[in-house]
Amino acid sequence: MNIFRLTGDLSHLAAIIILLLKIWKTRSCAGISGKSQILFALVFTSRYLDLLTSFISLYNTTMKVIYIGCAYATVYLIYAKFKATYDGNHDTFRVEFLVVPVGGLAFLVNHDFSPLEILWTFSIYLESVAILPQLFMISKTGEAETITTHYLFFLGLYRALYLINWIWRFYFEGFFDMIAIVAGVVQTILYCDFFYLYVTKGEGRSQLSIPT
């Protein structure tokens, strides 16, 4: 464990908590893509099945349980408790165009053709594009609540910190995982446009207006 990975995990945790609290406190999921949240729940489910087979550390297990719990709680709030505030008309990204290719790629490009490894690979590829429905929804509505932009900032920052963690691990431990790195680069690139807007326009505006 190094500082980049730890701050990366904490940034990820912050994003997940910010979103859950935003929906719970405002009792509204307006502007939030339920589809992205379903994809994240799918990412955590397919990646953390090893909770049932191996114990790595208390930290590892605790974080996985928190991530999975919060992901499903968020999906529940969006599609059940506050479904009246769910903006389905703008959350129209065709997620099957993400899940099917990613599923196929996981079968073709992986480290080992075992069920757990293929599911892990699927979760890595899926996570890199899981935010697209959310970014698509924001581009359609042309705006995002400030709290939603903070959520996206920390979510994008987490994988960027993981990239630094992988550079650190390659340099000091000779460890590298090509699949995770390539997917992590793609994932972080998808946020670049948002990062630019967040930094340049985030200050002092109540709504982040993205030019459609």
């Binding site: 550390s57 974080m63 460890f175 590298f176 995770a180």
Partner: peptide, 10 residues
Amino acid sequence: LDSQTDKDEL
């Protein structure tokens, strides 16, 4: 260089 994968990362 072969890619190693230890699943201790989240």
